[in-house]
Design a binder for these strands. Structure first.
Length: 420
RNA sequence: GGAGAGGUGGCCGAGCGGCUGAAGGCGCUCCCCUGCUAAGGGAGUAUGGGCUUAUCCCCCAUCGAGGGUUCGAAUCCCUCCCUCUCCGCCA
């Protein structure tokens, strides 16, 4: 949610900033609703004031032993008026809130304008795609021993996978390795979180109300399955006022993620690139507003460190305004090289949401010189998507015989095994 | 799931339906006193919104959440949520 004051004072500027990410803000509707809100609110408050004053007078009169009956007459008409005004105000507020909740974050000025991923800009590359003197296989072929889509389909349908034996072990090793790296070397606090959360929590990070169709719900309960640990991790500070010395906070969690993938029918149907359920190690920062862009760079290097330790070639791109997520002001994607596809594919997305989520969550901090609170800034990034990391390891470390070398960094988690 | 108890400010804790946004205490901040320490004295100390260029003032809202009764609700009624105790079930 954007700063409501912006909507009042700089509505047109806000609209043009949003136009950079191709969001069409209904300026007239907002202006109208805002004017109504203002009138109604002033009216409601004036009426309440009158009621309070008179009620208090009645109380005093009664205490003084006066006859209170003549005072009760005209106050009831006031009550009806107030009720009507309150109802009007409620409706206007609801409509205004509903609109505001569907407005995405403002892009940072450094974000390249563009409608699609075609306008993303490469920031840097690390490593070089491996050269093979044979036709590289993709992960589905390479995993044919322990990566079983048929069994998963029998259990749950399409877009699920079952891993067996060393493949399942490798999956666990990757998650374990990432978690340890972030905790031991990058200063994160490890967190275990719920995987089912209230709609309010989803609203805090921006998944709701707009993206209900992307989420899985639980029948008979008012709960949703998390599409990313960003949701529970970021909402840790929901409705809290933090002291200056509590910041920055850095959380890491390994969780499954559940996505309906509505709207991506036919895309990435082969293999385990795009699943309804996948594991991810997620990084979240809660920081002082002045620090958030430094934090974004830091967070991104933390995610990159995982790829570097795994010796996986990748590149970093800045997402264009049109390719960014709803809550993000600026996003770096990490794209890992996949020999099976001969292209870079997203394996991490690191975003600064500035105060967008904090406002929705009512997460604030108190500045060091006291006086007043303001929203914190929140950031999140994958460090990394575990399933995709598994794919990347299989495809990048294959040899002509179809064996897969295990990168050194993972061997301690694989009982020292050198290959798969 | 059943029975009971309870949810009040950063914390503890009081609160006959009427100056109670809320006593008192602790904590914290500032000031005074003090050779130092300890103790003591005084003042201040919620959040959101409206008004305002801004501050102060003033106004509105908030005592788990949402409804209701009433001129008036932290106080009465209803529903829901959460916590605790006991029972049941269970990894």
């Amino acid at each position: 949610m954007l700063d409501p004051n912006r909507f009042r004072r700089e509505l047109d500027e806000t609209a043009s900033a949003l136009a950079r990410r191709f969001f069409d803000l209904d300026v007239d509707a907002i202006r109208r609703l805002e004017a109504d809100r203002r009138d109604l609110q002033t009216r409601v408050e004036a009426l309440r004031n009158q009621r309070n004053v008179r009620s208090r007078a009645i109380g005093k009169a009664k205490a003084a032993g006066e006859d209170v009956r003549p005072r009760l007459g005209d106050i009831s008409r006031l009550g009806e008026e107030l009720e009507a005004a309150e109802q009007g105000l409620g409706e206007v507020r609801d409509r205004l809130d509903a609109m505001l909740l569907e407005v995405p974050n403002l892009p940072h000025p450094s974000v390249p304008a563009g409608r699609t991923e075609a306008e993303n800009l490469e920031v840097r590359q690390w490593g070089a795609p491996p050269r093979f003197d044979f036709e590289p296989r993709d992960h589905v072929e390479l995993g044919s021993g322990g990566m079983d889509f048929d069994t998963a389909a029998r259990l749950s349908g399409s877009r699920f996978v079952t891993l067996f034996g060393p493949m399942a072990r490798l999956h666990r090793a990757l998650a374990q390795f990432m978690l340890d790296l972030h905790v031991r070397e990058h200063g994160y606090l490890e967190v275990y979180t719920p995987y089912l959360v209230h709609p309010k929590t989803m609203q805090g990070t921006g998944q709701l109300p707009k993206f209900e169709q992307d989420l899985f719900s639980v029948a008979g309960h008012d709960l949703r399955l998390i599409p990313t640990a960003e949701v529970p991790l970021t909402n840790i500070v929901r409705e809290r006022i933090l002291d200056a010395d509590e910041l920055p906070m850095k959380f890491v969690a390994h969780t499954p993620c559940f996505r309906s993938e509505a709207g991506s029918h036919g895309r990435d149907t082969r293999g385990m690139l795009r699943q309804h359920q996948f594991d991810k190690v997620e990084l979240v920062h809660v920081v002082r507003p002045d620090d958030s862009y430094d934090a974004l760079e830091e967070l991104t290097t933390h995610a990159e460190a995982v790829l570097q330790r795994l010796e996986l070639p990748y590149r970093v791109v800045v997402l264009s305004t049109g390719d960014m997520g709803f809550a993000a002001a600026k996003t770096y994607d990490l794209e890992v090289w996949l020999p099976g596809q001969q292209r870079y594919r997203e394996i991490s997305s690191c975003s600064n949401c500035e105060s967008f989520q904090a406002r929705r969550m009512r997460a604030r901090w108190r500045g060091p010189q006291g006086r007043g609170t303001e929203p914190v800034h929140t950031l999140n990034g994958s460090g990394l998507a575990v399933g995709r990391a598994l794919i990347a390891v299989l495809e990048n470390f294959q040899d002509a015989s179809g064996r897969v070398r295990i990168p050194d960094a993972l061997r301690p988690f694989m009982d020292g095994a050198e290959s798969l």
